[in-house]
């Protein structure tokens, strides 16, 4: 009688069965979750694109945004993704101190991003923007803006909380070996979504 692990290892890639993707079930479930979440964002952004194309006019971006400020937010998020990738690399090499240090740096980046987003939202709300109206003449604009950046911001907040739990577990030596990689996949996804939001909202 063969062990289950031997049977899984012997199965061909396209033979189905135990491990056709050659990743752990946790990692596979994380990827499946991310694909589902990506489609949710794709739906939002496609809807935004359609509304924008269908609208005869759209507010000029310089009226509403300070591009230098948004560029700094982007810089912080990309840098936090690099520190997270370094944490995952360190976890694979067994360097626990570096993992914890990089996870903490990633948390700092996430919190800074959230603080800047809160500042940006406050400025727009003070200027008269809400979910159903704004002073720039196209109500759709602020509806989509608050919905999509808010949904992304809630992902950043969840990521910071998950990173905090990971840091606590790392500090107490209770983290699973695979945890930094799984949390890393989620954090990079947050960065990936921002790449689309930054381009479609702030640059085009």
């Amino acid at each position: 009688m063969k062990e289950a692990s031997q049977v899984i290892g012997m199965e061909a890639t396209w033979g189905g069965g135990g491990s056709p993707f050659a990743v752990s079930w946790r990692k596979l479930m994380m990827w499946i979750f991310l694909v589902g979440d990506a489609l949710l964002f794709a739906g939002f952004l496609a809807s935004y694109g359609f509304a924008r194309l269908a609208s005869p006019e759209w507010p000029e971006r310089s009226q509403m945004f300070h591009l230098e400020f948004i560029a700094l937010m982007t810089f912080i998020l990309i840098s936090s993704s690099a520190t997270m990738a370094t944490a995952v690399g360190a976890a694979h090499r067994g360097d626990r101190k570096l993992v914890l240090r990089c996870v903490l740096l990633t948390i700092v980046g996430g919190v800074a991003f959230l603080g800047m987003q809160a500042y940006e939202w406050t400025s727009l709300i003070r200027a008269g923007a809400s979910l159903h109206a704004n002073p720039w003449g196209v109500p759709h604009f602020s509806s989509y803006f608050f919905l999509i950046t808010g949904f992304h911001g809630s992902h950043v907040l969840s990521g910071v909380i998950i990173l905090g739990i990971l840091a606590a577990r790392l500090a107490s030596g209770r983290a699973r070996e695979e945890s930094p990689e799984l949390v890393g996949l989620y954090w990079h996804f947050v960065d990936l979504v921002w790449v689309f939001i930054f381009t479609l909202f702030y640059l085009i």
Binding site: T13, A38, A42, H188
Partner: peptide
């Protein structure tokens, strides 16, 4: 980001196709 940060280029082709094509075609 997908290839280097999320390490997708180190995964099996099956997983890469599932993730990339899954998102692109469904979207």
């Amino acid at each position: 980001i997908l290839a280097n940060f999320m390490h997708l280029r180190f995964e099996r082709v099956g997983l890469i196709l599932t993730v990339v094509m899954g998102i692109v075609f469904t979207a």
